[in-house]
Nucleic acid binder design. Structure first.
Length: 472
RNA sequence: GGCGGGGUAGCCAAGUGGUAAGGCACGGCUCUGCAAAAGCUGUAUUCGUCGGUUCGAUUCCGACCCUCGCCUCCA
């Protein structure tokens, strides 16, 4: 079975076959955040999706080079820097650190490389230079450099590879910002923006005068620098299809004359409580907002991973509560397996664990059908619980089952986020006291202790092997 | 107006030309002195509406209704 992915370029499912002649190395680029504020839950859906792609490719044995940029120069950032009277780097570094912490909270593996746009200005200038040389870019009277769609098309290149475009039918004008009126054509986009007074100290020198890069150019420059002029996989949110990714293709192919990216994958947006997120509706959440409500990164990750990446997903607080229960079911099962396996944690998966891995990969191979993959996980949980309850599992079999779970969890990334809570000694003492009371049939006392523990946030679970304390 | 997604149980969400995964919630049962955010188990004659193709459609085709996204710097 081969991994198939939906390629936005072809609008079909295609077998995933990396450019590497050995079929091992995969270059993967995901458009990262613009660090003007804390990222919201919608942003994170895309990054968790990218993490899933990377992890699954690694699961399938590919050697992935995962690159994600940080956009640390942009209109909104410049505006805030000016308003707050701080230095660009100080402002953006703070947001960037918060963002990376958030990624950790969500159990996302750090991309192998996290380039900042401002560290690649010379590469961007070089790329713009190539476009000027090839005659597909021009300097307008406002001194900014623009990419000419017409000239690009004149070279036999295709503009509109990711989305069918019909310029005549497009609603032009609404959102064309005032600083771009000197373009030759409304479809043209900025490669280099000439310095204006509002930019303050945020500018760089270039052969065309002082200024700063346009938005799209950074991704072309950084991805080609780090992954080569043609690479395997480019990801991003669906809203980036046009214009951002279309323009990346134009800039890159316009400069190199080579295909830019083999597979484009786009994650759908999410709705929150059935509506598009907006601050006025009160359904706009940053990761930190949700943590403050008492949800964990793990629950959020699970919920974000519960639906297929190409479907709009309805993210709800109820769903988050449900995620807690669903995860507890897995945790219970895994904890019981650990207990039974004891020190034998070097198991190789056999039997039902192999079946789990098989069903999991079959699902994931089909364009990352993660919902079906979870289905396989939960059926395995039920079957494992059944056998656990029936005392049918040996320590070796438990270790084998664990090995199976750990294999799929290296993709799902849920287990590592499970915090083992230590029971405070005074609570253990209370638990023992309750046991003594129960033995003496002093149920009034034992129930009082149970209530006491509950008030302290711990719930007792009586098992055939004796009572256990679980953090509420 | 152009382009592209969706409408499957109370909620979330897979899927298939042959009769509906999984999760949450809910009910039953087991365990328990009683419990339990423990375990098992049950729950959609039905997949937006109306037509068509077919032995058979939720799945294919057509029309319609509703909904969401993109259309120049928003993941």
């Amino acid at each position: 079975m081969a991994l198939r992915v939906y390629n936005t370029l072809s609008r079909t499912l295609q077998d995933f076959q990396p450019l590497d002649p050995d079929g091992q190395a995969v270059g993967m680029y995901c458009c990262g955040p613009t660090v003007h504020d804390f990222a919201h839950i919608g942003n994170f859906r895309t990054f968790v999706f990218a993490d899933l792609v990377r992890r699954y490719l690694e699961f399938r044995g590919f050697r992935v080079n995962h690159v994600m940029n940080i956009t640390d120069v942009e209109d909104k950032i410049i505006k805030r820097v000016r308003e707050q009277g701080v230095k660009l780097a100080d402002f953006t570094r703070e947001r960037e650190n918060a963002f990376l912490e958030d990624l950790d909270t969500l159990g996302c593996l750090r991309p192998h490389q996290i380039p900042r746009a401002t560290a690649f200005i010379s590469e961007m200038i070089a790329l713009i230079g190539r476009l000027m040389e090839r005659g597909v870019a021009y300097q307008a009277p406002d001194r900014s450099i623009y990419f000419s769609i017409e000239k690009y098309r004149g070279c036999g290149c295709t503009y509109g590879q990711l989305q069918k475009l019909n310029f005549e039918e497009m609603r032009v004008g609404d959102r064309v910002s005032s600083d771009e009126y000197e373009k030759e054509s409304v479809a043209d986009f900025a490669l280099w923006k000439a310095r204006v007074p509002e930019d303050g100290e945020v500018y760089w020198d270039s052969p065309w005068g002082q200024g700063r890069p346009g938005w799209h150019i950074e991704c072309s420059a950084m991805s080609m620098k780090l992954l080569g002029e043609t690479f395997d996989l480019h990801l991003g949110g669906e809203d980036l299809v046009f214009p951002h990714h279309e323009d990346e293709i134009a800039q890159s192919e316009g400069a190199t004359g080579k295909p830019f990216v083999k597979y484009w994958m786009h994650g759908a947006h999410l709705l929150v409580e059935g509506k598009k997120m907006s601050k006025s509706l009160g359904n706009f959440f940053t990761l930190r907002d949700l943590l403050a409500k008492g949800f964990s990164g793990r629950e959020i990750r699970y919920l974000l991973l519960s639906a297929h990446y190409r479907e709009t997903f309805n993210f709800t607080l109820d769903g988050l509560t449900g995620a807690k229960s669903a995860l507890a079911r897995i945790d219970e099962c895994v904890a019981k397996l650990r207990e039974l396996a004891g020190s034998r944690q070097d198991g190789t998966s056999t039997g039902s664990a192999d079946e789990l891995i098989g069903r999991f990969s079959t699902a994931m191979d089909e364009d990352l059908n993660v919902s079906a993959a979870w289905g396989a996980v939960f059926e395995w949980v039920r079957e494992t619980n059944r056998r656990l309850a029936g005392g049918e599992l040996s320590a070796a079999e438990a270790a084998s089952a664990l090995a199976g779970w750990e294999a799929v969890d290296r993709v799902l990334g849920i287990g590592a986020l499970c915090e083992e809570s230590q029971v405070p000694p005074e609570l253990s003492a209370l638990l023992e006291e309750r046991q003594a009371a129960r033995k003496a049939k002093d149920f009034k006392r034992s129930d009082a202790i149970r209530d006491e523990l509950k008030a302290r946030g711990w719930v007792i679970e009586d098992t055939p092997k004796g009572p256990r304390l679980k953090k509420l």
